[in-house]
Amino acid sequence: MKSIVISGVVASLLFFSGCSEKAPVVDTKASTPTQEVVKEAKPVATEVVSPESSSVGSNLNVMKLSEAEGKLTSIYFDFDKFAIKPAMQGKIASDSEVVKMVSDTYGVKLEGNCDEWGSDEYNFALGLKRASSVKKALVAEGVDASKISMVSYGESNPVCHDKTQECWAKNRRVDFSLLP
């Protein structure tokens, strides 16, 4: 019973310590030209110029990233299946072209998802195998495998919440996310 009480005491600590969001990503490429400018500037000028040029560089990259992500389309799957359907091959080809264009700058994260039929590990594994199928297809199209990471969100990341077969079909998918 004491442990219950103790858990209550540390709850607020855990609330903050345990809920860390994704760590901010540092864009090292954006800061490279800034360092060259700094070398030529006087110490006082460096303090002003450095953050301004870093800021501009970051904004440009954010735009490129979102623009590229907008061109990537999700790949959809049949119930309890992780093989890529023939109808999805065209999307795979167009997605791989986009990934190849930006792969020098960004990594690509494949996010496997399932419909709502089960929160168990099998559903997570199914989402992962879907992501893995897409990864193999991208590699076959010439994408560098080392640029691709995968994760499965199981049924926990639905884009459609209705109780219809059409809705469930929208949730059986692999999404693309670009990583700086």
Partner: peptide, 24 residues
């Protein structure tokens, strides 16, 4: 970036990383 197994000690609120794996 990678799914990570973590360990939470309720007695002191300490969280530690155990092991991570790509995908799952």
């Amino acid at each position: 970036l990678k799914p990570t197994l973590k360990f939470l000690d309720i007695r002191n609120g300490k969280i530690s990383n155990i092991i991570a794996s790509d995908g799952m």
